[in-house]
């Protein structure tokens, strides 16, 4: 039950990240079109904020998809008995570090709100808004890492192995 909800949650974050990636393109298209019509529209800031949103909302989904790069050269050659504790160590370290980060990114968003920090460009975006997005994305990543840690501890095997892209992803033509 919880597992199903979590998987849906990571997936939803992934789609949100993709939507923001489309947002980058839309912002820049608007900028080009506006320029041709002689209107000054600066979309660099909006595009940048979409990029940040895309990156952070995408973290958990990308993690579950095995797309975060790591060097599993040694790990993959360890005997199963030794490999397990190493993977548990990795997820534990990741969970601790990313939870710590989630805490401080949330603090940053609160601080920006308290400081009344606003982006310098035409958008005049209060920074706490995109930073709250960052906090949500990093928290989702922390949850995914803790989820994975508990899964490993309960006897499961790692679900974040990178798929061999070449083998699986032949061109559709």
């Amino acid at each position: 039950m919880i597992r199903g909800v979590l998987n849906k949650f990571y997936e939803a974050c992934g789609y949100l990240a993709a939507a923001f990636m489309v947002g980058i393109a839309l912002a820049i298209i608007a900028q080009i079109v506006a320029r041709f019509r002689g209107v000054t529209l600066d979309a660099t800031e909006a595009a940048g904020l979409c990029l940040a949103a895309s990156t952070f909302f995408g973290l958990a989904h990308t993690f579950r998809h095995g797309s975060h790069v790591r060097i599993n050269l040694i790990v993959s050659r360890l005997p199963a008995g030794l490999r397990r504790p190493v993977e548990i160590f990795n997820c534990l370290l990741g969970a601790v570090v990313v939870s710590f980060l989630a805490w401080h990114v949330s603090a940053l968003a609160l601080q920006s709100h308290a400081f009344n920090d606003v982006s310098p460009g035409l958008l005049a975006m209060p920074f706490w808004i995109p930073q709250t997005g960052v906090a949500v994305g990093v928290t989702a990543f922390a949850i995914a890492l803790i989820d994975e840690l508990l899964w490993l501890l309960s006897g499961g095997s790692a679900r974040y192995e990178a798929p061999d892209e070449i083998g699986l992803d032949k061109p559709v033509a």
Binding site: H68, V69, R70, I71, V75, E87, V98, L101
Partner: peptide, 15 residues
Amino acid sequence: FLLASGVWVALSLLT
């Protein structure tokens, strides 16, 4: 050490 243990590259740098 972290990279060799298979910790994700980004998280190794961060740590």
